[in-house]
Design a protein around this nucleic acid. Sequence first.
DNA 1: TTGTAAATAAGAACAATTCCGTTTTAATTG
DNA 2: CAATTAAAACGGAATTGTTCTTATTTACAA
Lengths: 141, 141
Amino acid sequence: MKVEEALSVLKKEGYKYTDKREVMLTFFSHENRYRTAKDLLKHMEPNFEGISFDTIYRNLHLFDQLEILESTELNGEKHFRMRCDHHHHHHFICKNCGITKEIHQCPMDDIQDELKGFMIDDHKFEIYGMCPSCQVEAPMY
Amino acid sequence: MKVEEALSVLKKEGYKYTDKREVMLTFFSHENRYRTAKDLLKHMEPNFEGISFDTIYRNLHLFDQLEILESTELNGEKHFRMRCDHHHHHHFICKNCGITKEIHQCPMDDIQDELKGFMIDDHKFEIYGMCPSCQVEAPMY
DNA sequence: TTGTAAATAAGAACAATTCCGTTTTAATTG
DNA sequence: CAATTAAAACGGAATTGTTCTTATTTACAA
């Protein structure tokens, strides 16, 4: 998803434009990987001295809820990335840098009768490891 | 995994037998679902007044590391359950009570070429929702 | 231009988890 | 059986990630 598109989602839903929001969205749009609230804070601080945790978290959750970002939990810390807007898929995630690679295959396709009577409202399929370039830079972690 | 089996793993690995450890393991062996550190603490307190967080967490991690328990992260809180010792599988997890149902199908089986060059060391496939009995007791959550 | 709902700051509060110095205890050894 | 010792547990403080609260500021519609 592009920044302009995200901004128009905000506008359409009645949320206000702020320069902080634009910078946040730009940050994510430039990265093809999962980043934490702390990463975002570090990126914001030079430009917005004294920006509060609250602003960071409130907006991350807003973006997540508006499906501008997608999120996952890794080592007890929430990670966010710009939502991929093409069809449903999953991710390989590099434990080192957070970069992702799409997996165009969903295990739910093959699950029908196994869960009769169970109400399904979500699922998670993620593969963890190290991407090629991190294997070079940091052979062990 | 049974309690006796878990205790023998401990012994084999050179860890000591303590009554607290036995009670912890018995707790998990009686439950077919994911429980939190807090759940375990609540269960321990009546019998072991003043038991410390440290004891709970240290042992949970020890058991996890010895593959006596398996763990997953749900809403920012680690959850543990006795490890299923038959062949590799995944779980449906009830968001309400933590009960699990095995899914005997692993999406990794169909992934070969997609991740050439990526080092894979883990994966997670979980389905979330509500089990039949929770649907009756608590139609909405 | 002004009113108001939304956004933010600043820091307190919170919840889950880990750390640390000390004491106790299970299992080993003399 | 006593002495030893390494592991385990205690008790509470510290840390980390996140949320809440109150007051203040700001975007933007009327």
